[in-house]
């Protein structure tokens, strides 16, 4: 019996590998393909020239730098504003809690293009179109709920007895928070900030609607490359965009469980 389940499970693992890894592998192969005949399973030869190409002709590095800068500022603001809100939601009787939850739910249920159209109109009037601050602001709409969600679950997981002990030992409220609560919540806050960073780095839809002339992020650069039909350079730009996320997700997963990450995706959707 155990043996039969074992064989079925490994067959399932193989099927999962084929379904999930094939598109990723195809993308990777296109990025190093030195010529891929129609009807061939693999490219005829391999090359790294497309990576040099996107650096030389597609301004990939300035776009990557801009994306990283925007993501850093977005994550920082999200942390600054979202961490206290997460603490309050987890620990304190917050007036209008339902209103806050309803607002985030409404954001989850509203298609990004709908928010994008409204944002484009408002930004045009406010002079935020195609600006650094405008892109950060647009990214905060998605990044902030991720940060608040992470912060709230981090603070909720702390045993109040530890804080009470510090209080009994004579520490004031602020000292307790600084020396007990904050260090315990730090991994969760870090995870939240990393998720906000990744969200901003990968954001395409709203950025596409409000930017792209002066401020071209890497996702926008990738889209213009693939729209021009440069198949292999677009694949190389894709790999360049995914690489930082892979490293960062690995960091997040040292803190957050995989199943919780699925829930976070639902919030960011």
């Amino acid at each position: 019996m155990l043996r039969r389940i074992g064989i079925a499970a490994f067959a399932g693992l193989g099927a999962l590998a084929v379904v999930v890894a094939t598109p990723a592998l195809v993308l990777l192969l296109y990025s190093v393909s030195g010529g891929w005949q129609s009807g061939a399973v693999f490219p005829a030869e391999l090359t790294l020239e497309w990576y040099a190409y996107i650096v030389r002709y597609e301004n990939a590095l300035p776009a990557l730098t801009l994306s990283l800068r925007i993501a850093a500022v977005t994550a920082f603001v999200a942390l600054l504003v979202g961490a206290p809100a997460g603490y309050a939601l987890a620990r304190l009787p917050v007036p209008g809690r339902q209103v806050i939850e309803l607002m985030f739910l409404a954001k989850t249920a509203t298609p990004v293009i709908v928010v994008g159209v409204g944002t484009a109109v408002v930004f045009l009037r406010a002079g935020l179109t195609d600006t650094f601050a405008g892109i950060v602001a647009a990214h905060l709409v998605g990044a902030l709920p991720l940060m608040i969600w992470s912060a709230a679950s981090a603070f909720r997981a702390i045993d109040p007895a530890l804080e009470e002990a510090a209080h009994d030992a004579g520490a004031g409220a602020f000292r307790t928070f600084l020396l007990v609560t904050l260090p315990l919540a730090r991994p969760g806050l870090t995870a939240g900030a990393l998720l906000a960073f990744i969200y901003s780095l990968d954001e395409f839809a709203i950025t596409f609607l409000i930017s792209g002339v002066e401020y071209t992020t890497l996702p926008l650069r990738l889209y213009s490359t693939l729209q021009q039909g440069y198949i292999e350079p677009a694949a190389a730009a894709s790999v360049l965009l995914v690489a930082p996320s892979v490293v960062l997700i690995a960091l997040v997963l040292r803190i957050v469980r995989l199943t919780d990450l699925g829930a976070a995706q639902g919030h960011a959707g």
Binding site: P84, A85, A88, L92, G118, L140, L144
Partner: peptide
């Protein structure tokens, strides 16, 4: 204290989501 902690997040989110909507 709770209101002071949540206010910046709510204001920012309202400005960036509710105003466009």
């Amino acid at each position: 204290a709770a209101a002071a902690m949540t206010a910046p997040a709510i204001l920012l989110f309202a400005l960036l989501f509710l105003v466009p909507m």
